[in-house]
Write a protein that binds this DNA or RNA. Sequence first.
DNA 1: ACGAAAGCGGAGGCGTGTCCTCCATATGGA
DNA 2: TCCATATGGAGGACACGCCTCCGCTTTCGT
Lengths: 225, 225
Amino acid sequence: METTADDPAARPLRRDAERNRRRILDAAAEVFADRGLGASLDEIAQHAEVGVGTVYRRFPNKETLIDALFDDQLDGIVAIAEEGLAIDDPWGGLEHFVRSATERQAANRGLKELLLGARMGTSTGCAMAGRERIEPLVRRLVERAQADGSLRPDVVTTDMPLIQLMVGALVDYTRDVDPDVWQRLFTVVLDGLRAQPGARTPITATPLDDDGLTAAMTGWRPPRG
Amino acid sequence: METTADDPAARPLRRDAERNRRRILDAAAEVFADRGLGASLDEIAQHAEVGVGTVYRRFPNKETLIDALFDDQLDGIVAIAEEGLAIDDPWGGLEHFVRSATERQAANRGLKELLLGARMGTSTGCAMAGRERIEPLVRRLVERAQADGSLRPDVVTTDMPLIQLMVGALVDYTRDVDPDVWQRLFTVVLDGLRAQPGARTPITATPLDDDGLTAAMTGWRPPRG
DNA sequence: ACGAAAGCGGAGGCGTGTCCTCCATATGGA
DNA sequence: TCCATATGGAGGACACGCCTCCGCTTTCGT
């Protein structure tokens, strides 16, 4: 019980091994975040300045590594939903969740892929568990905002992940050109979700110019999984 | 000038060759439409009940085949934009364009990829040309609807392709489970685009249930290009 | 200080999947 | 008939990803 509650009969790792373990974890976090889960372990090893063999010694396969990395990332999303529920204003709570969750997915391609189930045959299992934890919270956020009359009554809980998906695609598409444009359309979507369309929320992010659009269309690293 | 204005000094193809050419074109249209441009020529050959060699005899490479196929598909999109401009009501015109174009992309994955520039290194060149023809028409649709006070003034022309992209991603994600769910969120987006949010447009398509959502998340053939 | 145990790197095996070529064989049509 | 034209599909060339293997290095308890 000296390390953590990780492995019952586990001697602590040798100092160099522990150091490399961290390097790998850090590198993997970085690489998965901006390349997606399709990133190869070779790529991660290189980024960690470590041999592939070392990666495989510590994490028997890619899935294990992903699980190790994203468990707490998923907790982060759950926490966001809980924060949303803690906000008194139902619409504010819902908006907080959708916006913050999207921001996090904008910053982390791997997380997005995990949440939306794209990529990876068996989806690493831990993703499923995460989604199951999130779903009831979102349901409550939605119902609360509808009861309150701020969210249009004809949307349902399952529409929310689809919105995340849409905006997530936009994020992937534009991130290299301008990491903030997605907020423009996000505002539009949010306005479309309101039950009482009092006023439009002003769009603040600057739009893409023609060159930017062309750049987004042509320069586009396919995800691969 | 007996075939069409295809090749200046071209003898007509032998009857069997011509027949196969059609088979290939038809098969390619079908396969690209529902698998995306990433579909392999082997796959197309098989679907056309023809050897791969035959495909390559007629179309020296994949790009040529794609160009041959999608030139008029792009014309179709241009035509939709023109129809939109022919409609008196500016909002109606814009909506006609966005909705119809999206429908077409929903029915044709290859077309979507071509228009949005995902996939294919050089994008086949003809895609660029197509986009350049479409852009000014869309610009006019947008400006007209804004002058008229029906489209919110803070969106710009370059936002339109981004909307197509978002909804297109949704379409890809859900098509196998329920080909119509995308219309739900499309309605939301459209409502968010209106300048005067008089009333919400009712959402008509039925939502995904939990199982449907799970199915969409797990069963997901990656595009590959 | 020293030796065994733990760890390391990265070349390379294996599998997969694509584009495209090649050539023995078949077919259309003058 | 006869040959230019066309066919099919095995397989070459290549790229890429996951993961293993093993000779060498480092750590750490004694």
